[in-house]
């Protein structure tokens, strides 16, 4: 049983798919679609980062006593992602495909190496420490998939 890893890893795949669609629409300079899909992508990212920062990380820190280590690094990389997403928003609004594609390439590398660390290390450890906490898993699910 690995409910936390399953839930959050599946959401990574969902975010990746929206990322790819937004990037493709931008490369084709289909700005109406790009704006719409990018908004979906950014919304999904915001929910994912919020689920981790507001629910998973505090519970993980409280249960394991590890405050300065992995979750701090994850939070710092989340901030780097938010910075890139902000600039990508500007690039979509200004119809600047070159800027968007350079930022998107950077975000993808940041995001995927970050996800790798989460999926290989942090989520399995979270499941070991917190996997039986049904309320926590329920809160994560609701944050990722609001009604």
């Amino acid at each position: 049983m690995s409910p936390i890893a399953d839930l959050l890893s599946t959401d990574h795949i969902h975010c990746d798919a929206l990322f790819a669609d937004a990037e493709e629409a931008t490369a084709e300079r289909d700005w109406a679609a790009a704006g719409r899909i990018f908004a979906d992508f950014r919304g999904a990212m915001d929910r994912h980062l919020a689920a981790e920062e507001d629910t998973l990380f505090p519970a993980f820190e409280a249960r394991t006593g590890m405050r300065g280590g992995p979750t701090q690094v994850m939070r710092a990389e989340h901030e780097q992602m938010r910075g890139l997403l902000e600039q990508m928003q500007t690039a979509v609004e200004r119809h600047n495909d070159a800027a968007y594609l350079g930022l998107a390439e950077t975000l993808l590398m940041l995001m995927r190496q970050h996800n790798m660390k989460e999926e290989q290390i942090l989520y399995p450890l979270s499941d070991q420490a917190l996997g039986d906490d049904a309320a926590l898993v329920g809160t994560l699910d609701q944050t990722l998939h609001p009604a």
Partner: peptide
């Protein structure tokens, strides 16, 4: 801030 330093493709 992103945008004030070169991105990967730059």
């Amino acid at each position: 801030r992103a945008g004030t330093i070169p991105n990967m493709k730059e």
